[in-house]
Design a binder for these strands. Structure first.
Length: 419
DNA sequence: TCTGGGGTCCTAGGACCC
DNA sequence: TCTGGGGTCCTAGGACCC
């Protein structure tokens, strides 16, 4: 991108974020081996592990049961996404004090464009230390900070600074910094690419720079070209190459559920699809998105996974339309009687508004939309369980309410005051 | 080891149109 | 008749990230 003036980019990455937040809620966890993500005997993987647990080989994405074997005395804690979102908000607020260009890359990491802030904050290393201190005193959370002339360098830098450190890669030192690192340290190089590179005799980033760009392009396509740039420390290609501070709209919204035990019971499968459809629909309404493509995902017990999508004539944000679509896709594609491990519902292909609305005669669709928005509102006020369009996971039979949606929102409003 | 849930981006083939 | 090529949309799958 802009080559005239080197940028100063910070990558701020919170240390063991989920674990640290859980420790703030329960200080007795401090210093112990802690595993966040579920109970030791549950189907699931580790979301985060404390440094004490990592010493035993526990790491994120590892099955919980494996973690329990490696570290039997670890404390297993369920994850609390709301808590992490809350603290993520605090973190974001702190970061905004240091730069007008802040971009949260996920719940626990952010990029800051610090170019031109020297007059205000001094040299990068100095402002990084101030940021580090402010973060600690304001949130009681540790972070690591990487400083570089590109997002890539900053990101790799913060990883090398962990835990609780700051690392500045001086301008023009990028290639030198990267050369001895493992190819796997480059963001975007995962297990598969690593293996292919190893087969080519490439182990370190420095080995990559000795290859011609076009050789990499031939082997890996577009991605190979980007990889060649990354090896030099450039923000080559795609998202990396964008300005810091452009929070973009989501491209898809999805929810999925893995059963604790596989099931082939049609009632259960249907009610799960209904519940997932409601969750997706709700978020479409909250965000003001109208989806044209609805996708079903299902996984059998042998882990084979399929996706089946359908694009609607008109975009939607209605639970029922989402549900009818995935239900049909499921019945068309499920090998009847085969136990299901996971179901998922995804909405994508967003449009600004519904493709067509009948403005003269309020359509069924519009009435539904109104009813659902009112229902969402009641849920916000009284809690998720105050209204049930479907019984979802709770089992039992679904009420047939299609014909009289307007009756829904008022249905239970007078019951129980919030706690 | 027995594998979550939320996303993004890329590839590739087929349909369809000009 | 047995053949082109580009563009766009749709669908399915896979690598990767946190």
């Amino acid at each position: 991108m802009n080559t005239s003036m080197p940028r100063t980019i910070f990558h701020v990455d919170m240390d063991a974020f989920f674990v640290s937040v859980e420790e703030l809620y329960d200080p007795s966890l401090k210093g112990k081996p802690v595993v966040v993500g579920g109970q030791r005997d549950e189907r699931g993987v580790v979301s985060a592990a404390s440094y004490a647990a990592r010493k035993f080989g526990v790491h994120s994405a590892m099955p919980l049961r494996t973690a329990a074997k490696l570290c039997p005395h670890a404390v297993f804690v369920d994850g609390h996404p709301e808590r992490y979102r809350e603290y993520s908000g605090h973190v974001h607020e702190i970061l905004c004090r240091f730069s007008p260009q802040v971009e949260m890359a996920s719940v626990d990491e952010a990029y800051l464009d610090m170019t031109g802030t020297e007059r205000l904050h001094g040299l990068p290393l100095r402002s990084a230390h101030r940021l580090h201190e402010t973060m600690k005193s304001a949130t009681q959370l540790n972070c690591s900070i990487g400083i570089g002339t590109s997002r890539l360098i900053a990101k790799v830098g913060s990883a090398k600074a962990k835990p609780n450190g700051v690392l500045w890669v001086l301008p023009a030192q990028e290639a030198k910094f990267l050369a001895p690192l493992d190819v796997r340290d480059i963001p975007g190089v995962g297990k598969v690419t690593e293996k292919k590179l190893h087969e080519m005799g490439i182990e370190r980033v420095g080995d990559l720079t000795r290859l011609e760009d076009r050789d990499l392009e031939q082997r890996f396509g577009k991605w190979g070209l980007a990889l060649a740039g990354k090896a030099r420390g450039e923000d080559a290609g795609g998202w990396f190459d964008s300005e810091v501070g452009e929070d973009s709209d989501p491209k898809s919204i999805s929810h999925e559920h893995t059963y604790n035990e596989d099931t082939a019971e049609l009632d259960r499968l249907h009610s799960t699809l209904m519940r997932l459809s409601e969750m997706v629909g709700r978020r479409l309404r909250e965000g003001g998105y109208f989806a044209r493509t609805i996708q079903l995902k299902f996984r059998y017990k042998d882990f084979t996974t399929f996706t089946r999508a359908h694009s609607l004539e008109q975009s939607t944000q209605l639970d029922t339309e989402i549900y009818e679509t995935v239900r049909r896709l499921f019945l068309q594609n499920w090998k009847t009687g085969t136990p299901i491990r996971l179901l998922g519902v995804q909405a994508s292909n967003f449009e600004a508004g519904p493709s067509q609305i009948d403005l003269l005669e309020p359509s069924r669709q519009q009435r539904w939309q109104k009813a659902l928005q009112a229902a969402d509102h009641v849920r916000d006020k009284f809690g998720e369980s105050s209204i049930g369009l479907a019984t979802g996971m709770k089992g039992g039979f679904r009420e047939r309410t299609h014909e009289n949606p307007a009756a829904l929102p008022g249905k239970k409003t007078e019951r129980k005051e919030p706690g």
